[in-house]
Nucleic acid binder design. Sequence first.
DNA 1: TTGAAAGCGCTACCAA
DNA 2: TTGGTAGCGCTTTCAA
Lengths: 341, 341
Amino acid sequence: MTIKDVARIAGVSVSTVSRVLNGKDRVNPETRRQVLEKVKELNYVPNNLAVSMVKKKTKIIAVVVPEILNPFYAAVVKGTEEIAKSRGYVTLILLTNDNEKEEKDYYDGILNKYVDGIILVGSHKNSEFYQSIEKPTILVDRYIENSGKDGVVIDNMGGTYQLTEHLIENGHTDIAIINGIMDFNDGRERFWGFKQAMSMHNIDVHEKYVKPGNWFEENGYQSTKELLQSDHPPSAILACNNLICIGAIKAIRDLDLKIGEDISLVGFDDHDLAQFNRPSVTVIDRPTYEMGTNAADMLIDQVEANTSKPLNPKKVNLSVNLKVRESVKNLNQSKHISSTK
Amino acid sequence: MTIKDVARIAGVSVSTVSRVLNGKDRVNPETRRQVLEKVKELNYVPNNLAVSMVKKKTKIIAVVVPEILNPFYAAVVKGTEEIAKSRGYVTLILLTNDNEKEEKDYYDGILNKYVDGIILVGSHKNSEFYQSIEKPTILVDRYIENSGKDGVVIDNMGGTYQLTEHLIENGHTDIAIINGIMDFNDGRERFWGFKQAMSMHNIDVHEKYVKPGNWFEENGYQSTKELLQSDHPPSAILACNNLICIGAIKAIRDLDLKIGEDISLVGFDDHDLAQFNRPSVTVIDRPTYEMGTNAADMLIDQVEANTSKPLNPKKVNLSVNLKVRESVKNLNQSKHISSTK
DNA sequence: TTGAAAGCGCTACCAA
DNA sequence: TTGGTAGCGCTTTCAA
């Protein structure tokens, strides 16, 4: 069943059928009615492949993330898919496992296949790679300067700043930070936010309390153990993402210490365990779903405006949200701070 | 940059370029070398849209799931994507929110757009709907009889059977079950597994210990409370999925009771909390990732064999795995059963 | 308002 | 072994 068949059966030309289907040109109302009738009758649906070929637009966008089992990325995908759907697009999903090579291959192969645009949580560090992407692209979470692309990120610095200040307000000065890799803006900015807050309050950052590493649970677990088993353990730990925080919670439990009593803990990113644990853990919550929806809207705007390279790349910075719970001991009065949420 | 340009610059015909690129027909080695050289030089990549149009194959498969934030579905998506990728396909993701109408709309619109086949965790109950899908389709998790489609499911009955028997072996007879909706095979089979195990051991199922409901946490929470606050509370609870189990854990904690002491608990589906909780919770673990990989392989086999409708639809039943932990009290000797994992 | 026909970029058949 | 060419199913001029 092609447009030709419809035309033949309806007794009009192919062009006419095309016209009534696209509704742009004017067609005699009576002709239109008849054509529409046949279309319905024959259950005709245009072949999108052919349409795409002519229009050079596929109505497909790609979302490229390192991993889908991580709820953070899943939320980005969800946000993307829902906006895409509502605007008539579908979503291709690509998992890179944070493998630069794999990601690169996508661009040479898959991505210039079909898609109108790309939402990308990238694994590449150098801006040249991003510059070489021809299609409209929105960078999510990780932003690369001089990439020439728009981005949607969160206020990493503000997040750790708030977390650190919250600890300081509760009388903590011996604050340790367990961070992930600093290759991207996220790790770097989170560390800066911490340093900034410390310096604003004239508190020294002890070298031994700074634990860079990676974003995984094992790092959180090991670093916490080292910290707590050292000669002069900190009074509080700032875990820079959800997995590190989970590792920290487990380490503290395994050492038979009590969160909010023996050691205070705050984390970047909210997660089930932070809520479920007793005492619950104070965290910075970030709008992950909204990162997806924002990125998708920006992307589709670009696609439909035919602006593959924004003249002035812009970075949308979504604000984060401190969720005070029960994991910080108030040293000022030597008792727990009251929880708000 | 089209195949025409390459042909012109290489001084050969379009057909020849096509031949060397597809590598099926034989081409003079020297010609091939020259063409390949130009292809590389010009950085030419074929337009897949055009290829798809001619070949009537897009190398795109769709995975349709109710929700992506649920780790179970995320694992299915991950399994699908990885197999697809390794076999040269890409994956379109569609979220239905378990909304039948939304799902239906996909078939009328999006899905006959492009895709070669579909992996489907369906929301529809009636087999006619599935019969009407023209493309190769694999049903995952939920299987509908007479749908005419192949399926990949898990051994639901075996799962609850093992769970129940485990309780019985530990001396429990007052066993309650909190189940989800019974509209699909999953809820029904899980209930049957429970009944079967009880009857095999000649234990009566008390009406008041059977709690059907839905698959959400709230149901687990409320039902557990009702059960435990009743006149004659059960000694053990079987939670039929991850969310119900989480609800149960929270309810038990809120009632200040201790799992494995005051009340035994087992769950269908493994999840973070079941592992993290102390005592940890005995569960049935199911191979979710493998459901995705199996389904994707079956689907692509069908696509490449051009068999949109299998003559003898088959259902692949993946076995599940009891993970004994610490949440079941041994009533036989009135102390905890030792944990294995 | 309608129809004819060119063309989107490619594959595959038929001839040479 | 190669080249010419007819489509794939559609949109979009251009003329009528």
